[in-house]
């Protein structure tokens, strides 16, 4: 008999492993080294982006702007690359853009007391408008500096470098969230803001940090996306909004049930990307993918709705 809490903690992980095993058996070429590396590369974008969203949600703030901020950062990077600025400058500007948007969200939430659900929607709209303003709606496309493209397309041996970057980011994020004072303060702020404040935790700082990390992650993802696609378009990360939230929600069904956590988000992102890769290898038609993603979202929200509600409505 498996204890109830073990099912709560590891049920989704187990389901993910079952999915993996299923694909290994039934999906031809799924378990090949090339495909597994392919999956790891593909998950990098979603993983980094949703880790950012998770940090904000740990502090009980809902960042709905991360996808549009990512697109805006991408456009900033693209415009500088197109204008032949050195790539480190373009990358820095993209990261700064993301960080700035995150800090702005933090300011709106903590100083102007606009609930994050509203303030980040506002930021998202502004970011979208700016992205269109910079591009005039036309994507930046070019055959840019190979050193820059290496960040997204490069390989060391058979291993795409983006996997290595992501591993580093994952390790750092996991460490920050579980092994440091900053991380536990973030959590305390999200779990019980008043108690945290009265225990001497600077909850305002925690909230700003959570949202800033979300913005920074959006900037990082933008670098990867632009370098991978050698182009930047005003809504290039739009699809990630739903997937990023889904990865985080799925993550909240494991390890520390109903609490956003980095490890869960990582597994959540992996499950989503493995599923979409697996469905292609199985020969599934395109609409199956949307249906499956929808089911995952509804199922994981059903398990972890309370936290989301609290973050959304600042209850």
């Amino acid at each position: 008999m498996i204890p109830k809490h073990a099912i709560e903690k590891y049920g989704t992980l187990f389901a993910g492993l079952v999915l993996f095993a299923f694909l290994m058996v039934f999906a031809e070429n799924f378990a090949s080294t090339a495909n597994l590396l392919n999956v790891l590369k593909q998950v990098s974008f979603l993983m980094v982006l949703s880790i950012g969203f998770t940090f904000a949600l740990i502090a009980s703030e809902l960042d709905l702007s991360f996808a549009n901020v990512c697109s805006l950062s991408a456009v900033v990077i693209g415009s500088l690359m197109q204008a032949a600025y050195p790539w480190p400058l373009a990358v820095s500007a993209g990261l700064a853009m993301g960080l700035f948007a995150g800090l702005l969200n933090g300011y709106l939430v903590t100083y102007l007391k606009v609930p994050s659900l509203i303030s980040t929607l506002g930021t998202a709209s502004v970011a979208n408008g700016l992205a269109f303003m910079i591009t005039g709606g036309v994507a930046f496309v070019g055959r840019w500096d190979p050193d820059f493209l290496f960040l997204g397309r490069g390989k060391i041996g058979p291993v795409p470098v983006i996997i290595l970057f992501t591993l580093a980011i994952v390790a750092l994020s996991f460490f920050l969230s579980t092994q440091t004072k900053t991380g536990i303060h973030l959590q305390a702020t999200g779990e019980n803001e008043e108690a945290a404040r009265r225990s001497g935790i600077n909850t305002r700082k925690s909230k700003i940090l959570g949202l800033a990390l979300s913005g920074l992650a959006a900037g990082l993802t933008a670098v990867f996306l632009v370098a991978n696609l050698s182009s930047a378009a005003p809504q290039m990360a739009g699809d990630f909004l739903l997937n990023g939230i889904a990865a985080t929600l799925l993550g909240m069904t494991m390890f520390t049930p109903a609490k956003p956590n980095i490890l869960g988000t990582i597994v959540g992102a992996l499950i989503i990307v493995v599923l979409s890769n697996g469905l292609v290898l199985l020969g599934a038609q395109y609409y199956i993918q949307d249906i499956m993603l929808g089911i995952i979202i509804v199922a994981s929200v059903a398990v972890s709705a309370s936290v989301l509600k609290r973050a959304a409505f600042a209850l």
Binding site: L229, S231, F240, V280, G283, A284, Y287
Partner: peptide, 10 residues
Amino acid sequence: QVLNSNGSLQ
């Protein structure tokens, strides 16, 4: 097998 990219480059 038909796939739809939903307008997303990535």
